[in-house]
């Protein structure tokens, strides 16, 4: 008796009996997971394909240099010591411009997020100025801040300023008001509420804004360095382009790409550290 019952249940589990059928599964999905090693494999196989294409003559060296040639150009750059000069000049501009732009953006964004008058003043200004390509303003910046470092840093500063402002006040707008009310109910000072409740709540939005502003900064860095810079990755790429030295051009572009990856990785680290409470 017992055994037949078990068999009967097993039959139901395996294939539905008679006029029934199992309910089809329709859930799952919509949750991308972290998969390791895929990204390096994609990068490597693209490089290998490219190299094979160049070696076999399928890709003409006039159209596109082989990766090995670009690597050679990079090697020259390292050996001559110029890489350090270009990179340090670029990084210096990037760090100063991005830091100042972000700090200013955080300040203005917080003011817009918290107070009525600054919101009425700055929010429309930001909306009007953000869409202007900063590259178009570069000649003006050169007149205002000089052909030297000033105009380059100003370009990056403005480029990172606006996305930060928008991300910051958007983040502050989304702060849970019940948490602010809680702060007030415990008599926390206004400064303490901003420091301990408002800014930490807005941090996820600020960090994702930083991702965008960092990329914009790198784009603007190169654009700015293409005018009147002796050293810098942008100047190197521009010179290579003028000489039709495609191997150097690709080497320079690769450096920019690595710079972008590094910045993105740094922000991911910051997110993992500062937003670990979200997990």
């Amino acid at each position: 008796m017992n055994s037949t019952e078990t068999v009967g249940n097993a039959a139901i589990d395996a294939a539905a009996p008679e006029n029934g059928r199992p309910v089809p599964f329709r859930g799952g999905g919509f949750s991308p997971k972290r998969v390791r090693f895929v990204a390096p494999v994609v990068f490597l196989s693209l490089l290998v394909l490219w190299e094979l294409g160049s070696r076999s003559g399928f890709i003409s060296p006039l159209v596109m240099p082989a990766p090995s040639e670009a690597l050679g150009a990079l090697g020259d750059l390292v050996r001559s010591g110029l890489l350090f000069k270009h990179l340090s000049a670029s990084l210096w501009r990037l760090v100063i411009g991005f830091t100042c732009g972000t700090l200013l953006g955080l300040t203005v964004g917080t003011l817009i997020g918290l107070y009525s008058l600054p919101r009425a003043t700055f929010a429309p200004l930001v909306a009007a100025l953000f869409p202007i390509p900063k590259i178009a303003l570069l000649p003006l910046f050169i007149i205002w801040f000089g052909i030297g470092e000033g105009s380059k840093i100003a370009t990056i500063l403005f480029g990172s300023f606006f996305p930060t402002v928008i991300a910051t006040y958007g983040g502050i707008d989304a702060v849970d008001r019940s948490l602010i009310r809680m702060g007030q109910s415990f008599n926390l000072s206004r400064a303490a509420i901003i420091r301990s409740i408002v800014l930490p709540s807005a941090l996820p939005a600020i960090l994702s804004g930083m991702r965008i502003s960092a990329s914009i900064s790198i784009i603007l860095l190169v654009a700015a360095e293409m005018i009147g810079a002796e050293y810098g990755i942008g100047a190197y790429v521009l010179l290579a382009g003028n000489l039709m030295a495609t191997d150097q051009l690709v080497a320079g572009v690769a450096i920019l790409s690595i710079l972008g990856l590094t910045v993105s990785w740094l922000i991911s680290c910051a997110e993992r550290y500062f937003l670990r409470w979200r997990v």
């Binding site: 019940s178 109910s185 937003l275 409470w277």
Partner: peptide
């Protein structure tokens, strides 16, 4: 007494990052 009138809220109002 640091805060004579102190609330306890329905939605707890705890800071998720602390």
């Amino acid at each position: 007494s640091l805060n004579p009138l102190t609330y306890i809220f329905q939605d707890f109002a705890l800071l998720p990052w602390r």
